[in-house]
């Protein structure tokens, strides 16, 4: 059991952090929501009701979509774009999808390679891009989820103020939707760019997110 935990410590710790932060968000979110309800002469809702509310759903999903967009973009951008000296980039000579030999596919697959790396055709094509396909799908689903939950919220607000409701497509055209979306995107893009640039000159000993401490600044893509 202890060995199992150690072998999965990275995913276990982040899973625990995620759950703890989500619980914290839900507790604070319910209180904020109820405060607002009372200020507007409405009634508060229970914690369990809040967990399945559009208010909580849109707050969760607007952050999810931007995180998955960030990684999806980073995964695909680093195939083609480089930053000289960065740990997050591959060397200038490797730009593109790389050779079958280097990618260990088809006849170059090894004994223990995944079976989808061995086959030819659509199966391999899909497997070669499976990470971006899944990350982009999660992004799109979360963004759609954000739009429908925030739309419900928006209309509840409209009704409360005696204004008319809008359709889902109408909501996509409102500044509310784009402000919620872009405020998350801007921070993700800045963070990705920062990682690409900071890892040229800064180091974290022992981290695969950094070059080795003694690696020269102009050395590109060599995790320590």
């Amino acid at each position: 059991m202890r060995l199992w935990a150690r072998h999965n410590s990275l995913s276990l710790v982040f899973l625990a952090l995620f759950i703890a932060a989500l619980i914290g968000q839900s507790i604070a979110g319910q209180r904020a929501f109820n405060e607002q309800q009372l200020q507007h002469g409405g009634e508060g809702i229970s914690y369990t009701r809040y967990l399945v509310s559009s208010h909580f759903g849109s707050a969760v999903l607007e952050n999810w979509q931007s995180e998955y967009l960030q990684f999806a973009l980073f995964i695909v951008a680093t195939v083609w774009l480089i930053q000289r000296g960065s740990n997050e980039s591959k060397p200038p000579g490797d730009v593109g999808r790389e050779s079958d030999h280097k990618q260990l596919v088809g006849p170059h697959a090894q004994r223990n390679s995944p079976s989808w790396a061995r086959v030819e055709g659509l199966g391999r094509r899909l497997y070669e891009n499976s990470l971006i396909i899944v990350m982009a799908t999660i992004f799109l689903a979360a963004w759609f989820g954000q739009s429908v939950t925030a739309w419900t919220e928006y209309n509840a607000d409209q009704r409360e103020h005696g204004a008319s409701s809008v359709s889902w497509l109408g909501y996509l055209d409102r500044p509310d939707f784009w402000e919620k979306t872009l405020q998350n995107w801007q921070s993700e893009f800045l963070a990705v760019g920062t990682m690409a640039v900071f890892t040229i000159y800064l180091r974290q000993r022992g981290s695969p997110e950094s070059k080795p401490v003694g690696a020269p600044h102009d050395q590109t893509g060599t995790s320590g």
């Binding site: 899973l15 969760v60 999810w64 689903a141 989820g145």
Partner: peptide, 30 residues
């Protein structure tokens, strides 16, 4: 291999459950 599969499955199930739940919540008011 089993342990890695377990972690993979936990993350997939968690993400899928969250997405399905809140898309359903959003669409429930249609």
């Amino acid at each position: 291999v089993t342990q890695m599969r377990t972690m993979f499955a936990v993350y997939v199930v968690l993400i899928a459950a969250g997405l399905v739940l809140y898309i359903t919540v959003g669409l429930a008011h249609l």
